[in-house]
């Protein structure tokens, strides 16, 4: 059994506290031997035990029963992707065909929308011209008295 110095013993207490059961196995026997022989070692251990006593006084609340149920209910759920991620995944597609068709489809949508909008605008302006002509005709036929 190796001997342990007071300095190392003090380090052990600083690190693991005063309870010998917490000391590393490799040094425990030597540390206990020093305790038997040295009153200074005993004093150091008592000081460490006082701090341990304080640490032991911290109360801990047990987990609530509903926490267990919550964990078991929640873990089945797949992680929720946001809408943008879903769109990007759909846009990219999963096969070579989809890699081309889906972006092409997405480009066609604004094109078709633009054409439809253009056609509607033309019809609207024609309607406006016809209404104007009709108004002029009515004015021309009206009495000036």
């Amino acid at each position: 059994m190796n001997k342990i110095t007071h300095q190392r013993f003090s380090q052990l207490l600083d690190t693991y506290g005063g309870n010998s059961k917490r000391w590393p196995l490799a040094e425990r026997a030597a540390a206990l031997k020093l305790l038997e022989e040295s009153t200074e070692a005993c004093r150091l251990q008592q000081a460490a035990l006082n701090l341990d006593k304080l640490l032991d006084s911290v109360p801990i609340a047990p987990p609530k029963v509903k926490l267990r149920q919550l964990i078991l209910d929640q873990h089945y759920k797949e992680p929720v992707q946001d809408a943008w991620q879903c769109f990007i995944q759909w846009f990219i597609g999963t096969s070579v065909r989809e890699h081309f068709l889906r972006p092409a489809f997405m480009l066609i949508i604004p094109l078709v929308f633009g054409i439809l909008l253009g056609l509607n605008l033309e019809t609207a302006s024609m309607d406006e011209n016809m209404l104007f002509a009709e108004e002029v005709n009515l004015l021309a036929l009206s009495s000036t008295e």
């Binding site: 609340a61 987990p63 609530k64 926490l67 919550l70 964990i71 929640q74 873990h75």
Partner: peptide, 15 residues
Amino acid sequence: PTDADDIVQETFVRV
């Protein structure tokens, strides 16, 4: 314990 609940819950989800 309240924050601990959240952390433990998240731990098991990650597991």
